[in-house]
Amino acid sequence: MFKRIVSGIRSIGHRVIESIWRLGLASRFFMLVLLKSGTSFRRFGLVVRELYYSGVLSLIIIVVSGLFVGMVLGLQGYETLQKYGSESAVGTLVALSLVRELGPVVAALLFASRAGSAITAEIGLMKATEQLEAMALMAVDPIARIVAPRFWAGVISMPLLAAIFSVMGIYGGHLVTVIFIGVDEGSYWSQMQSAVDFRFDILNGFIKSCFFGVAVTAIAVFEGYNAPPTAEGVSGATTRTVVTSSLVILGLDFILTAFMFRGVS
């Protein structure tokens, strides 16, 4: 019995030490990526290429999900607001939910599972097939040539995708409430405009999505670069990218929201 407790404590301790070690490794890797980002900006074509994979290819899922989330928000918001006779405020509800929270957060979650996992799998496979080592032996730094462009492409795509998501959501809400249900078009927009503030709502949402973009792509490239060079290693790393970045997005969202909207409104 005593032995089992001791070994239990020991295994917990081992896991804690392991994750601290991993966190340190990830931070060092992150610094390394930032330090070696010069190439990405000198040869912006590399980033543009990756923008296609992380941005353009995520566009469809972002547009469709944004539209549906906005439609559901419109429908649910209308049902609730109608009870208090203030269904004209539905535009405010849709816009504020999207711009402040759902836009950045849901877009980031979708981005993590669409583009983040692809980045991890790609880098992990390049490592497993010795492509990264081959590159290093050709005197080309794989962090500068492979990792950094993917990182920056993700960081650039994320805020754009979040903005597209919010706009699609607002038009989705417009479609359901104004066109199908018949809420007054003028009050949909005007209530929204008087409630949504550029600096507090839109800019803060934008800042949030920038943070999420950095977090998701940093996790994705780290997991890919440190994946064990086997089939199971790469698939495990891909799963870890999605799980870790989802948790980090939600945690980070709470922290950022607490900082941004504390004491206001």
Partner: peptide, 28 residues
Amino acid sequence: SLRRKMGMLFQFGALFTDLSVFDNVAFQ
């Protein structure tokens, strides 16, 4: 700069899978 004077052929080639044959050779 020393490695530019070396070449290495890996067991299974380790070609860059996202580049064509031409671009692989042109890479360096």
